[in-house]
């Protein structure tokens, strides 16, 4: 892995820059980076839930029955985000909340797979989120 990649996939950096968010990070066995955080976010607030320094930050705004999702690109990347259909349609399915899944491709160099579980606590006027992202270097075959 080159220096730039090592820097972007550094678990130490993700932990220190995400410290105020209570973010945890570790290296994946295959050389990628895993970051994870969980938080209670009050309805109407826009809060950062995951921070991958130099790549992206994911902000969320929960409301009672809708969820605003703001992936913010950090750096000069051309990013292609894709979400699973049920991520957007989740509210229509009252059989239970579906996890939100987002796939991002940063140039042709890195991929991020983001997974967010949420549970709304109406009495607390807030939603609990558990989020994780796996970030990897794209390997050419």
């Amino acid at each position: 892995m080159d220096r730039a990649a090592a820097e972007l996939l550094s678990a130490d950096r993700a932990v220190s820059e995400g410290a105020a968010l209570g973010q945890l990070a570790c290296a994946l066995p295959d050389g990628g980076l895993l970051i994870t955080a969980s938080r209670l976010v009050e309805f109407g607030a826009r809060a950062a839930i995951l921070l991958a320094p130099g790549l992206f930050r994911l902000d969320l705004t929960p409301q009672e029955e809708t969820l605003g999702l703001y992936p913010r690109i950090l750096g000069p990347w051309e990013v292609d985000w894709r979400a699973a259909e049920e991520s957007w349609d989740g509210y229509r399915d009252a059989s239970g909340p579906a996890p939100i899944e987002l796939h991002g491709t940063f140039g042709d160099q890195y991929t991020a797979w983001i997974h967010v579980l949420s549970f709304t606590e109406r009495d607390a006027l807030a939603t609990h989120f558990v989020a994780k992202a796996e970030i990897r270097v794209v390997t050419e075959r």
Partner: peptide, 15 residues
């Protein structure tokens, strides 16, 4: 500005 402060404000911001 949000790029700089949101990582420091776990409760987020409201408009």
């Amino acid at each position: 500005l949000l790029d700089a402060v949101l990582p420091l404000l776990p409760g987020g911001v409201r408009e």
